[in-house]
Each structure stands twice: as C-alpha cells, then as structure tokens.
Design a protein around this nucleic acid. Structure first.
Length: 629
DNA sequence: GCATCATACCTCTCTTCTAG
DNA sequence: CTAGAAGAGAGGTATGATGC
C-alpha cells in the first residue's frame, strides 16, 4: 500500500480546496485552479525545504535546481491526483458518468455515418506505407516537397491532406481490380462501423441492473445540469418528476422530483405547494403503478445519492440561487438547506399494494441533509439522508376506483386532490402556482434566480466568489463594485508617485459578476439596479500613501500570461479595456480609488498592469490611486 | 461553385483505472 | 493510498459527400 504523502496540515489545506476544485471543474477554470492551489501549497510548504533542507535557492547548484524543478512538478502531480482521488472516493463521479451516458444515447445515431473512402482504406495498406516512406526519403520528390510545404509545424509526420493526395495519386495508378478491392473494403468497413455503433447504442438502451442503478443514482447530477441549462437558455425554471421501479428496493416504485428556482422564502415549487405529496406525488405514483403493475411493496429505500458537494464553508447563506431540490416520492417536506426551511416530516418510501391501491406511506424522522452547496451557479444538494430509519407509519388510502371515468383527465388520471388546508379565504382561490407567483409579486417582483453566470465564464474572469450577492433577504442588487471596505495606509509611507497608464486592478473577492455586467433576463430576473458607469479612464496615478474615500474599481481585461518565473507566480493583464466595468467617478478628473496589490510587487514607470484571480491570494497591501479621466 | 455536414487524424489535457 | 498507464474527450485542420 502506498504511503500517505500529505501531512495533517497539508491534508486539511487540500480538503479546504475541494470545493474550489469542483467549481473549477464546472467553470472550466482548472488551469487557474491548479496554478492557484500550487502557489498556495508551495508558499506554505516550499519544496526546497523538503528536498534541500537549510539550503536557499541561491546556494543550489545547476543540477540541484534542475532536480528541484522535477520535484516540484512531481508534487504538482501528487496534488492533482489527490483531488481526483478524493473526488472519486466520495462517489461524485456518478452524475458525470450518467450525464455522459445520456448524452451518448441522445446524440448517438448512425444516420450520416461516413466510413473511410477507398483512398483512406488504401492509406492503411502496407503498399501505401512503402510508397509514403519512399516518398519521404526522396527529398527531391515534388510530392514530398508539397507534403512539407502544406504541413503545419508539427512534431510528427506530414499533413493529412498531403498524405491523402499522395494516396490518391498512387491508387489511381493501381489496377482496376486493386481499386475495386479498395472500394469494397471501404464499404465493408463502413458497414462494420455502423454495426458497431448500432450495437453500442443498443447496449446503452438496454442496460443491465447495475447500469440502471448507476443511472438512477446519477439522476440528480444529470437533472441538475439539465435544469440549470434550461434556465440559462430560456430564463425559465422547471420542475421534473421521474419515477419507476427501483432495483435497489426490489423493483418498488420510487419517485423523485427535481426543482429549479426558489421563492424569496427559499422554498422551491415542491415546498411552496401545500400538500405537495398528496396533490402531485401521489397521483404520479399511482400513474406509475399502473405502468408497472408488478411492482412490490417496497422497503425503505436507498436515498438518492449525493452529488459533488462543496463544504459548507463555500455556501452562500441566504444567497438566492436556483435550488435543485431532489426528493423521493415520500419526501413531502422541504429538505433543510442553507437557504431552506427546516424539515418537519419526511416519509420515505411510497408503497402501493394492488389491487386495493392502498398506499401505506411509512414515515421516517427528518433525515439529516447536508447543506446545499454552491458550485458554480448551481446548487448541488447532498440529499443523502444519513440516518434513514423507519418509524411511525402513516396510512393513506387512495382508491383509484373512486374516481368515475368522467372525472379522469385526458391522460386517464384522477384530478389533483384539493388541498384540505387551503379551502377558505380569498388567497385560497388561487391555484398553488398563482399563489406562488403572488408571493413573488408581494416581494416587489424580485425573483430568486441568480444572475446568469456561465455564459460569462468563458469571456471574463469570474471566480468562485463572483456570484456572491450581498443579501439573502433584500431584493437583489448588483454588488457594489470596488473594495469591500476601505483600508488605509497599508503601504510604507512614500511620496513617490508612479504613473501607470491604463491601470486597472481586479479586486479580490469583488470581481466582475453577472449581476453587474449582464442585463436582467426577461422573465427571470433580479431587481434592476442602477446602470454602472463605465470607467474609461486611461491614466491613473498610484500614490502609495494617499488615503481617501475608496471608490469602486473593477476590471476584467484581456488576458496575457506573464511568464511563470515571476516572483508572484501571477498572471498579469495588460491593456485597458475601454468597456471595462467601473464605477461612478464622483469627482473627476481626479477621483481616487483604493485597491490592493501584491505586497512584493514593484511598479515600473508607465507599466500597464492588473492582476487576475490567480494573484488573488497573494499577500496584498492597499494603495490608493488617483485616476485622471 | 458554394455551403453544410460528417469524418479522420493529431495533439493536448483531463479523468479514470489499476498494479503495487 | 500512490503513481504511472491508459482512456476519453476537446480543439484544430483538412477532406469528401451531398444538396442547392
């Protein structure tokens, strides 16, 4: 067995980064994450101290420096492996697996499949290999010259185009019988590939028990991504109900519901709908029972597996974000989360016993739910009841035969039962959904949807904290751009004024967010906010000892990687973007702004600079800079 | 002739697997 | 639990087939 390479402190440090790792995966910012986490790790535990104790960099020989470099790379590999290993250990890859499976099934088709052509088949023959080698060796060959000229700089062989041209020319010189053989071989290969593709698709569509279980356990992740994508694409929220025989509980019927979108109270549709279980889950379960009449009485079932979750430390308490609420058929009460109301009861498994259609609903104590955690712009719940023990049972009697045929709807389903608790009062005249919307309206129409984030991820720098919004209760506002607080006199006194052209500095923890760079989406949105004033300043002056009222500065610029040999291991950005987000300049032309910069950074005259999130955790000092507009 | 679609191949990165 | 190997997938480039 391998030895553990991390110390307790290192393990704790890496553990704290797990949520950032998952966010980076979702936000496609792994490079940035690796850079940041490596920097912080080596800052805490310099590799040189491990390999060459008591020796400074300056004292290392060339060979030692080279060796140290290899050690550092090896350590980085260990860190990477640690995160992936930890992720798998926590069974967080199932959702991804299932998503891939679904995608494959939805996307797979043999229609339009093009197999290799006769020329391409010929390229795989030994005859052509000999021709190609001969051609490559003949430096005076025009074909080889063409190959060389048409090839882009690569580490390996000639370009495909030149190869095909060579093959085509060579094949044309072959006998008709040879050509016909190539054509037939190509057709056979086409058919073989189509058959293989078809067989693979059929295998996916007819999974065995283990594959079905894996798919069911991946539902949470798949629907989470799906509903988030729906929201991104349409600005709409959605609720999804799925169910069927669950192999994990001997084929009993189980229903899950997934909900996207929360009211201001933090409740999802399921939680907002009074008596949701009776009115929605139960009829749906009855419908499923009709589809799967052979299903047996179930025992308390396995809960929906957890999804990748971050530590609660990364949760944004009270931040209204789309909730992804997953529940079993019997989960009639909200799952307690960081933004949800506490659960009261949580029946576990719905059992229907034909033919009387008696529905015994065992209840279990409120399960302990892990908190919702924010990963990217999606809340991924860990709905794993940790102590799912059955207790008192509540009996529900539902007789489908009690519904006359005339009352069944177009789908042959009974009408939704009226909510016995909401039969009086004007409000009760509203449908559940209307009442739900009414609640929103009463709160000034402030929706609880988050700003759309992901589409900006690929164009701007948004960190894990970028979607942190200010208040859990008040209507959403754009975050105040600029520093979270005014800081003063952090730099050593100096009267030197260093001009900086096009200065803009990305604030730690106060980055460009969707709320301040994306217009509210029709029908989804958060409260309108005062339009930001673009800061088009092109000249700024850093004054190290100036202390003034802080103003907001925010910039996300085009990226330009600095070399990695810098003392800060940072990524620097140059060139001011004139559409840069800024703030109102109250007292032009000499507004003063406060920002923070790496402690050890040395400004150069006329230097253009800003710092991306990779420098976020670099020790910083605060300076105030004046901006001439 | 042109636009569109589907594919092959290469390279690189990310992720998973597995022997030890 | 580690660490190397292997697989999976994305991005880029180029080509052929097809339809207009």
């Amino acid at each position: 067995m391998g030895a553990k390479w991390t110390s307790k402190e290192q393990h704790e440090f890496l553990s704290l980064k797990k949520s950032d790792f998952m966010k980076a995966q979702l936000q496609l910012t792994l490079k940035m994450f690796w850079s940041t986490v490596s920097y912080e790790f080596f800052e805490k535990w310099p590799e040189i101290n491990e390999r060459f104790p008591g020796v400074t960099h300056e004292c290392l020989t060339a060979n030692q420096q080279q060796a140290l470099g290899k050690f550092v790379e090896a350590r980085k590999g260990q860190i990477r492996s640690w995160f992936y290993h930890t992720q798998r250990e926590e069974s967080k890859a199932r959702a991804t697996d299932f998503s891939k499976c679904i995608t494959k099934i939805m996307g797979s088709t043999t229609k339009g499949t093009r197999g290799p052509s006769a020329v391409e088949m010929f390229m795989q023959t030994e005859e052509f290999v000999k021709v190609r080698e001969a051609s490559e060796e003949a430096s005076e060959s025009s074909i080889s010259s063409e190959i060389a000229s048409t090839s882009k700089p690569k580490k390996t062989g000639p370009g495909i185009a030149a190869m095909k041209k060579l093959a085509k020319a060579e094949l044309s010189s072959q006998s008709d019988k040879f050509k016909l053989d190539m054509i037939n071989h190509a057709k056979e290969e086409c058919k073989r590939r189509a058959d293989v593709a078809q067989a693979e698709l059929e295998a996916l569509r007819n999974p065995d028990i283990a594959q079905r279980v894996k798919a069911i356990e991946g539902l949470g992740g798949m629907f989470g991504q799906l509903l988030e994508t729906v929201f991104e694409a349409t600005g709409w929220h959605a609720s999804v109900y799925v169910g069927g025989p669950d192999p994990r509980v001997k084929g009993d019927i189980r229903v899950y519901s997934f909900h996207h979108g929360q009211a201001l109270t933090g409740s999802t549709f399921r939680e907002s709908l009074p008596n949701h279980h009776e009115r929605v889950v139960k009829p749906f379960t009855m419908f499923l029972q009709a589809l799967f009449p052979g299903s047996n009485a179930s025992q308390e079932g396995t809960p929906l597996p957890s999804l990748p979750t971050a530590s609660s430390a990364t949760t944004t308490p009270g931040t209204p974000l789309p909730s992804l609420s997953t529940t079993s058929s019997a989960t009639t009460t909200p799952a307690p989360t960081a933004v949800d109301t506490p659960a009261t009861t949580a029946p576990s498994t719905l059992t229907i016993t034909p033919p009387s259609m008696t529905v015994p609903l065992p209840t279990i104590p409120s399960p302990t739910y892990a908190p919702y955690t924010q990963v990217g712009s999606t809340l991924l719940p860990d709905l794993l009841p940790q102590t799912p023990s059955a207790s008192a049972k509540t009996q529900y009697q539902v007789d489908v035969n009690a519904f006359p045929e005339s009352e069944l709807n177009e789908f042959g389903l009974p009408p939704l039962p009226a909510d016995p608790e909401t039969t009086e009062g004007d409000d009760n005249l509203l449908s559940p959904i209307s009442a739900w919307n009414c609640e929103l309206a009463l709160h000034q129409g402030a929706y609880t949807s988050p700003p759309r984030l992901r589409h900006t991820l690929f164009n701007t720098s948004i960190t894990a904290n970028s979607d942190v919004l200010p208040s859990p209760v008040v209507p959403l506002q754009a975050p105040v751009l600029g520093l979270p607080q005014q800081t003063t006199a952090a730099l050593p006194p100096s009267n030197d004024t260093i001009p900086i052209v096009s200065s803009s500095i990305t604030m730690p923890h106060q980055r460009l967010t969707a709320a301040n760079n994306v217009a509210p989406q029709p029908g989804s949105a958060f409260q309108s906010v005062p339009a930001p004033v673009f800061n088009t300043c092109t000249t700024a002056v850093v004054s190290a000892n100036t202390v003034t009222e802080s103003s907001a500065v925010n910039s996300v610029l085009g990226t330009l990687d600095a070399d990695s040999g810098g003392p800060l291991n940072k990524r620097m950005r140059l060139d001011l973007n004139e559409n840069d987000m800024g703030t109102t300049v109250n007292n032009p032309p000499h507004s003063l702004h406060t920002c923070s910069i790496p402690t050890s950074h040395h400004f150069q005259p006329n230097q253009c600079l800003s710092f991306s999130e990779e420098a976020e955790r670099i020790p910083r000092e605060t300076v105030t800079w004046a901006c001439t507009c």
